[in-house]
Design a protein around this nucleic acid. Structure first.
Length: 700
DNA sequence: TTTAGGG
DNA sequence: CCCTAAA
């Protein structure tokens, strides 16, 4: 099997690695130790990237910028992928993605054995806020014989404020020699480091072509879009017109400040004003993030730094819910979680794996381990304490298996937006993509030692998932369900909340680290009911069920030496094969599905009250009466909810799912339902009688 | 547009 | 939640 390891960044932005053997055998990776602190939602990063992109484009377009740019220290933005297979030869190519005004060179590493590694990155040096931002998307495909097409893109984004580096790269900036890992020219590393030090810029502890240290030099930020070409043996990155589009995009991009994001979304919400023009000639941005998995590993420290430099940043909200676009997925997932909980499985998610029933908030289901990572218990209804299943009931609490999901992988996201779209729109699009990835037709697979554990009835104990050592072989994968398409077309709909909880820096830092402003806004909890912005999430539909989403969730134990991530290659291959890369072009209309927004008890209460008073045939009135301000609740929704409520009230409590509705309410539901249906039938019969009388009258 | 129901 | 026939 091929080992993958990479580094991005500097400053602690540790990129996950997937050790398949004891790290000791591969040499120590200093950065890895920061893994825990570096988790961050890929989406956020993408979003922030978009924001930065805009900023950059604006500034670069300014006449004064040109000269300014020259003054700016060169930013080194390298990313490297190290392959450990002996037979793996790395080939590096620089692909000029030509992002118009900006020159962007993206190094591409490719191995001869068929491995492909595409690096997409973007960096910038913002003179205003002194924030360096690095965005990298690395795709690499494993070429293990088993999985020739297993492509695993990784996205990483780093942000650092220049102030954060007062001359030294301590902590966050790993020693290049160490971070570089194998195949790294130490001199080069040093050079890089030196560079970083003197410029305060960004230096990745990555290998770069020693002969061309500047190969990956990036003057200006640019969003590079790489199109994976699996057919290409040369592994060259194919970038179809991306540069041109990119430029146009940037230039024409409508400013959509992060701060305005939420507001903007509101205005867009209902209307479909933003439907991408379909006219021929419209240039669009096509982004093919051929990511098999995205990994983001931000560091808390960096968070803080970013925060200093960012404006309008808002604290990351604690409570976030996972929106499922697909009921099936939800159910499946819920099902899984329940099973997990039954077995006393505790999953500590540090990388933002959550769900509506997993609250990543301190007050609920959060556990802190010695490493400081928050632990979420995956269990139905957010049960915070795992309950041992019958088969392992005699285990003590100590025997609970603790898992820590460090990151997750998303195979491929394809989106398309009109070049006139705003950055906010792009952000939303990305958000949607991810949301879709998570919400659309995915099911969870448990992987153990590279094998799927298909028998849901086996206990962890029986499976062997118990000891710390064994946990190294444990993994999860979110795989697309069979019929899932794999295209994500950016729509105009407003953004939606992330389907998963954002990594909670908060959990580690009371200071509430913040994300990039734009991102934080996006991620912010929905505004109060009356707030126009509240619809942001509701209107953002994200169920592009198609997103070829095969998402692997890497897990790691919370036990000692937990910084290592476990890769589960084969599974990926399998999942991938199910979703051919070639499917991407299918940009045909993807039906969006609204994000699922379970009714809260209070909403149910309001609904019941309204129906009690108005009856079951006046949904519009019900809506006006009790949900006028809940724009995300249509009368159809209310009707549907009532329908389900009635059903729920009729079934046994054990069969009910989701947030439990107080029995009292259900009783009222039944009563009201009985009353109104009775009335209705009476009315009906009465009408019939009257009509009969009328018709009969003449006869008589 | 709103209802009513099936999917 | 979605889709739609019907009203």
């Amino acid at each position: 099997m091929v080992l993958k390891k990479q580094y991005h960044g500097f400053n602690g932005f540790l990129v996950p690695s997937f050790p398949r053997a004891p790290r000791s055998s591969r040499g120590r990776c200093l950065l890895q130790k920061n893994v825990d602190d570096n988790q961050i939602c890929a989406i956020e990063l993408l979003a922030s990237l978009a924001g930065k992109l805009l900023e950059e484009s604006e500034s670069s377009s300014a006449s004064s910028i040109a000269s300014e740019a020259n003054k700016l220290p060169a930013i080194r933005n390298d990313a490297v992928k190290l392959e450990q297979g002996e037979d793996t030869l790395l080939k590096k190519e620089y692909v000029d993605l030509g992002s118009c005004e900006e020159s962007v060179y993206t190094p591409v590493f490719a191995s001869q054995n068929g491995d492909r590694k595409f690096l997409l990155k973007e960096s910038q040096n913002n003179a205003n806020n002194s924030i360096l931002e690095q965005f990298s998307i690395i795709t690499n495909s494993d070429s293990s014989d088993k999985i020739s097409k297993d492509v695993k893109p990784i996205v990483t984004t780093n942000k650092i404020t220049r102030e954060a580096f007062p001359g030294k790269l301590e902590g966050g900036s790993p020693d290049p020699r160490e971070s570089c890992g194998c195949n790294v020219d130490s001199r080069f590393c040093k050079e890089q480091q030196a560079n970083a030090l003197e410029t305060g810029g960004l230096a990745n502890g990555n290998t770069s072509n020693p002969k061309d240290p500047m190969g990956s030099y990036v003057k200006f930020p640019a969003l590079n879009i790489l199109d994976r070409n699996t057919q290409s043996p040369s592994c060259r990155v194919h970038v179809p017109n991306s540069s041109f589009r990119c430029r146009n995009y940037v230039k024409l991009g409508i400013r959509d400040d992060d701060e305005n994001f939420s507001h903007c979304s509101k205005s867009i919400t209902k209307g479909k004003a933003f439907r991408p023009p379909s006219r021929i000639g419209d240039r669009r941005i096509r982004k093919l993030l051929t990511s098999k998995y995205w990994k983001i590993a931000p560091k808390l420290r960096d968070y803080e730094h970013s925060r200093v430099a960012l404006d309008g940043v808002k604290p990351l909200c604690h409570k976030r819910k996972l929106s499922y676009s697909r009921g099936s997925y939800q159910h499946e997932n819920l099902h899984k979680r329940r099973k997990f909980s039954k077995r006393g499985l505790i999953i500590a998610s540090d990388g933002g794996f959550s769900s509506e029933s997993v609250c990543n908030s301190p007050e609920k289901g959060i556990n802190r381990d010695k490493n400081g990572s928050s632990a979420m218990f995956l269990g139905a209804n957010g049960v915070s304490s795992p309950v041992a299943g019958h088969q392992s009931s005699n285990q003590s609490e100590d025997s609970h298996v603790k898992l820590n999901i460090k990151s997750f992988r998303i195979p491929e996201l394809y989106f398309e937006v009109p070049e006139t779209a705003t950055v906010g729109h792009l952000k939303r699009t990305i958000m949607e993509a991810v949301t879709a990835a998570f919400g659309g037709g995915l099911h969870v697979e448990l992987l153990f030692h590279e094998k799927k554990v298909r028998d849901d009835n086996r206990t962890l104990l029986q499976t062997g998932i118990t000891s710390d050592e064994n946990l190294n072989g444990l993994g999860f994968s979110l795989e697309p369900t069979p019929a899932q398409a794999s295209t994500l077309v950016c729509n105009d709909d407003p953004p939606s909340l992330l389907p998963f909880d954002i990594p909670q820096p908060i959990s580690r830092s009371p200071a509430s680290p913040v994300l990039d402003s734009g991102i934080s806004d996006m991620l912010a909890d929905p505004p109060p009911p009356l707030d126009p912005n509240k619809d942001i999430e509701s209107n953002i539909e994200s169920n592009h069920e198609s997103v070829s989403s095969h998402t692997d969730i890497l897990t790691d134990t919370t036990v000692p030496d937990c910084s290592a991530l476990v890769a589960i290659p084969q599974m990926s291959a399998e999942a991938i094969s199910a979703v051919p890369i070639n499917q991407k072009p299918r940009r045909t209309a993807v039906v969006k599905r609204r994000t699922r927004r379970p009714f809260s008890v209070s909403e149910v209460e309001a609904l019941v009250s309204a129906v009690e008073e108005l009856g079951t045939g006046r949904w519009r009135d019900v809506k006006l009466r009790s949900f006028e301000n809940a724009n995300h609740r249509t009368y159809v929704d209310l009707k549907d909810k009532w329908k389900t409520l009635v059903h729920t009230a009729k079934i046994a409590p054990q069969q009910r799912r989701g947030e439990p509705v107080p029995q009292e309410l259900l009783d009222r539901v039944l009563a009201a339902h009985a009353y109104w249906s009775q009335l209705q039938s009476k009315q009906h019969s009465k009408n019939e009688a009257s009509t009969l009388n009328i018709t009969d009258a003449p006869a008589i």
